[in-house]
Amino acid sequence: MHGYANPARFLKIARWFTMPLLVGGLLVTAAALVWGWTSAPPDRLMGDSVKILFIHLPAAWLGMGGWTAIAIASLVELVWRHPLAAISARAVAVPGAVFAFLCLVTGSIWGRPTWGTWWVWDGRLTSMLVLLFLYLGYIALTNALAREGSSSRIAAIFGLVGAINVPIINRSVVWWNSLHQPASITMGNSAIDPVYLYPLLASVLGFSLLFGGVVFARMRAILADAQAEARLRRKAQKAELAQTARGDA
């Protein structure tokens, strides 16, 4: 793992993967959505609104997966001081927040025709909203720390503490009464008919590839900004030293 701690080595790999992940993700997602849209029949209870499944579930998976990635990167940063861990956590935060937001919005739109309401303050919806607020807090904190040039260890602790919300979201439909249905896909088992399941899995794959491409692009942007800033600071220091030396002479 420490072999990839070198930013130059990481950038070489990231340059290879960014575009294929972004373009591949877009193509797989488009194909999966067309597949789901054209092949999935209306559901017995939910009617045509079942099509929202193909975007809602990948958004929920990436919203929760994003924070899990932040927690793992935070642990790696705190324990092994891996130089890229903080950058990767920062890079995941924005796409994670976007997908948590999209999960809430698409879920709310789906809830209106199926539950008869846009929103209920039950365990699943509320814990997902808390996740969105955690993302926003994390983004504000990491931006402030980066601006001040402070250590990112506080953000890493925030990332680890916030991870407590992920299993709460996952188990919320079991622990509390909820309008939200229980998990349809568990480890090695699925209650979803294959006519919905396969396009759904393809959609999850497509959105995940896209998410990976976005994270690589954001990591490259953060690293490039840091390198440009460091270079300009070094040049300014050199110019200042040269001016001082001329003054002394």
Binding site: P42, I52, F101, L102, V105, I109
Partner: peptide, 16 residues
């Protein structure tokens, strides 16, 4: 139902 489906897809695709 389709109005809700179109709205959800539009928001998700524009966001992504």
């Amino acid at each position: 139902m389709m109005d809700f489906v179109y709205a959800a897809y539009a928001i998700c695709l524009v966001g992504t």
